[in-house]
Simulated scan of single mutants.
Amino acid sequence: MARHIDIEEQPGEALEEAVRILKAGLPVAIPTETVYGLAADATNPAAIARIYETKGRPQFNPLICHMASVAMAEQHAVFDPISRRLAAAFWPGPMTLILPLRQDSPIHSLATAGLETVGIRLPKGFASVLIEKLGKPLAAPSANSSGKISSTSAAHVEADLGQKIDLILDGGSAPVGVESTIIKVESDSSVRLLRPGGLVADEIERVIGVKLIRPAAASAAIEAPGMLASHYAPGASVRLKASSVQKGEALIRFGRQAVEGEANAVAVFDLSPSRNLTEAAANLFDYLKLADASGANTIAITPIPSTGLGEAINDRLERAAAPRS
């Protein structure tokens, strides 16, 4: 069973123990502002392989590499002017840039799934301190079994991966609650949104002055994490845009929406009674886990606006509801 260390109560011990385990080539569950990550040395192929093994993640699905600073990121990736502008505006924070990998970067090809690009993010808080102390980038996908609901608390990580890893750093609930927004700059007029996330598209478009290009379909080529058609899935099936509830279903609604047959639900959760999309994003994965644990075979979810953070929420829900292999 994994050892837990509270990073607020024992910051020194948390840092020392995490560095020790990471240097031994083992993964550590760490809190970030988006979701909890399963982190390992991005330059160590054995450590990266343990991430894939622990999660049961296919090795064609690349990992985001987390950096402590822009200076560190520049040692591993080539920045174009627009990417530099985005980094200056939004790092540290919930944005990942897909950039050309420098030929002399020690990031291992297992982390990039053999691609010539690398996904880079600068996290806030303790994760950044840990990376700085280690002196190497951390590959860190979400700390959950592959394809399942992402973890936004240490308790979520424990329930899913606690028997497979040695250390969970507890930083409380992740404040953003969904993964980072992933951006790829192809030219001055072509900037692609590969995955909506914790940074809303409108803010990015305001900085770069052009509209983001959305993927044509969820089945597009895998260029970044979170692009698999089926992802973020609970054990129960997911039914979207529900206007009624069948007997034995769990209900997740938004904004106190009235739902026909609500009394039939085995459990009811409201992502945000006040229709606040920031609150809804923070609650999304936790409520999916709670609904899944209710014993329902199906989780019915009412419509959620697609504006702002609603784009990321709907992306996660559509992948959670997608047919599973």
Results as ranks from 00 to 15, higher is better:
E186V: 05
I222E: 12
F254I: 09
L309A: 06
S109N: 11
D170V: 09
L115E: 03
P45H: 00
S294H: 00
L161K: 15
G295C: 12
S128P: 08
F126N: 00
H156C: 06
F254S: 02
A321W: 06
A159D: 12
S151T: 05
L284C: 02
N44V: 04
R20S: 07
R316C: 12
P196I: 01
V19C: 14
C65E: 04
D315F: 07
V185E: 13
A140M: 02
D286G: 10
A42C: 08
A155K: 07
M72Y: 09
A291N: 10
N314D: 11
H4P: 03
L228A: 12
A49W: 11
G12W: 01
E158M: 15
I131P: 02
V78T: 02
P58C: 04
L38P: 11
S306M: 02
E262D: 05
N144V: 04
A87L: 03
P58R: 09
Y36Q: 13
T34G: 05
E186I: 07
L194K: 09
I64G: 06
A265D: 11
F126L: 01
L167I: 02
S189G: 03
P100G: 03
L317G: 03
E203K: 14
G255T: 04
V28A: 01
L15S: 00
A29G: 08
G310I: 06
S189V: 08
T298R: 11
L86S: 00
G308A: 11
G147P: 03
S151P: 15
A312C: 04
A221C: 09
T54D: 07
K136T: 09
R319H: 05
V35A: 06
G162I: 03
P175T: 07
A221G: 15
S150Q: 13
K148P: 09
A280S: 08
L240C: 01
R324Q: 02
L228Q: 15
E260V: 11
P323T: 07
G295Y: 00
H108Y: 02
S69Q: 08
G235C: 09
A42W: 06
A320V: 03
G261L: 10
E223Y: 08
A24E: 14
V178S: 01
V268R: 12
F285P: 08
L138H: 05
L99R: 02
D80S: 12
A111H: 07
I165K: 13
R275K: 15
I149K: 08
I98W: 10
R192V: 15
A68Y: 10
S69N: 02
N297D: 13
P305I: 08
E179L: 12
A49L: 15
G162Y: 10
